[in-house]
C-alpha cells in the first residue's frame, strides 16, 4: 500500500497550504446548509403530535449532541496517531478540537434542558444519558486544562493524548445509555440499520442540519489549526514568508 498520503500530514507547510482551500469550501457548504435547515425546521416541518412546537429544538439539540461525540472520537483518534507516530499535527488537532467539542457538548446539554422543561417538566434529571453527557463535558475540560497546565509541549501532547484515549470509554456509554438503563430520554432518531421513525418532513431538515454542523465544525477546526501551526512554526522561513504575504495583501 502507498503511504505517501499519510506522510504528507507530517508536514505543517503542506497542511497549511491545502487547508486554506478546504476552509473556504467547508464554510461555503455550512453557510448554505445551516440557514436552509434552520428555516425548514423552524417554519416548514410539521409540529409533533405530542410535543407540539417545542420539538423544533431537536434541530439544534441532535446535531450538537452528535458533534459533541464525534469530536471526542476525533480527539481519541488524534491521540492514538500522536502517541504511535509522534505526528505533531495530531496534537494540534487534539488541542484545537477540544474547545469546539466542549462548546458543542454545552449546547447539547443546554438545549436539552430547555427542551426538557416543557416536555418532562424539569430542566434537569440525573438520567443516564444526561449524566454521561455531563461527564463528556468534564472530559473536554480535563483535556483543555491539562494541555494548558503543562508547559512542555511534548509532555502536554502525551498527557492529553492518553486522557483522550482513556476517556473514549464514555462514548459507548452515552450511546447505549438509553438502552441499558431506564431513562426519560428518547432513543436515537437516526440509526444506520433502520429507517427513522419520524416522517421525512421532520427528519430531512434534521439531516441537513447535521451535515451543516459537521461542515461548520470542520471549517472552524481548520481555522484554529492553521493559526496554531503558524504559532508553532513561527521560526521557519515559510511562516515568515506567509506572514509577509498576509500583511502585504491587506495594505
Amino acid at each position: 500500500m502507498n503511504w505517501t498520503w499519510f506522510h504528507k500530514w507530517g508536514s505543517p507547510k503542506w497542511f497549511y497550504e491545502m487547508s486554506g482551500r478546504w476552509v473556504f469550501w467547508l464554510a461555503l457548504v455550512a453557510a448554505v446548509l445551516l440557514p436552509v435547515g434552520l428555516v425548514w425546521g423552524l417554519a416548514f416541518a410539521p409540529p409533533d403530535y405530542q410535543q407540539g412546537n417545542s420539538f423544533r429544538i431537536i434541530y439544534i439539540h441532535v446535531p450538537t449532541a452528535i458533534l459533541a461525540q464525534s469530536c471526542y472520537l476525533l480527539l481519541a483518534v488524534a491521540g492514538v496517531i500522536g502517541l504511535v507516530w509522534k505526528m505533531k499535527l495530531a496534537d494540534v488537532a487534539l488541542q484545537q478540537a477540544a474547545p469546539i467539542g466542549a462548546w458543542m457538548t454545552f449546547l447539547a446539554l443546554l438545549t436539552g434542558a430547555i427542551w426538557g422543561k416543557p416536555t418532562w417538566g424539569s430542566w434537569w434529571v440525573w438520567d443516564a444519558r444526561l449524566t454521561s453527557m455531563l461527564i463528556l463535558l468534564f472530559l473536554y475540560f480535563g483535556v483543555i486544562a491539562l494541555g494548558q497546565a503543562i508547559s512542555n509541549r511534548d509532555s502536554a501532547a502525551k498527557a492529553c493524548a492518553v486522557l483522550a484515549v482513556v476517556g473514549v470509554v464514555n462514548i459507548p456509554i452515552i450511546k447505549y445509555s438509553v438502552e441499558w438503563w431506564n431513562t426519560l430520554h428518547q432513543p436515537a432518531t437516526f440509526k444506520l440499520t433502520e429507517r427513522p421513525a419520524m416522517p421525512p418532513e421532520m427528519w430531512l431538515p434534521l439531516l441537513v442540519m447535521v451535515i451543516g454542523f459537521y461542515c461548520f465544525f470542520a471549517a472552524v477546526l481548520l481555522l484554529r489549526m492553521r493559526l496554531e501551526v503558524l504559532r508553532r512554526e513561527a521560526r521557519s522561513s515559510w511562516v515568515k514568508a506567509e506572514i509577509e504575504r498576509q500583511l502585504g495583501g491587506r495594505k
Binding site: P47, S54, R56, I57, L107, L110, T111, I114
Partner: peptide, 19 residues
C-alpha cells in the same frame, strides 16, 4: 410557537450566539 415560544427561541438564540 404554540406556547413554547420562550423555550424554542431561547434555545435557538443562545446556540446562534455560541456558533
Amino acid at each position: 410557537m404554540g406556547q413554547h415560544g420562550p423555550y424554542v427561541w431561547s434555545a435557538y438564540g443562545i446556540s446562534l450566539g455560541v456558533l
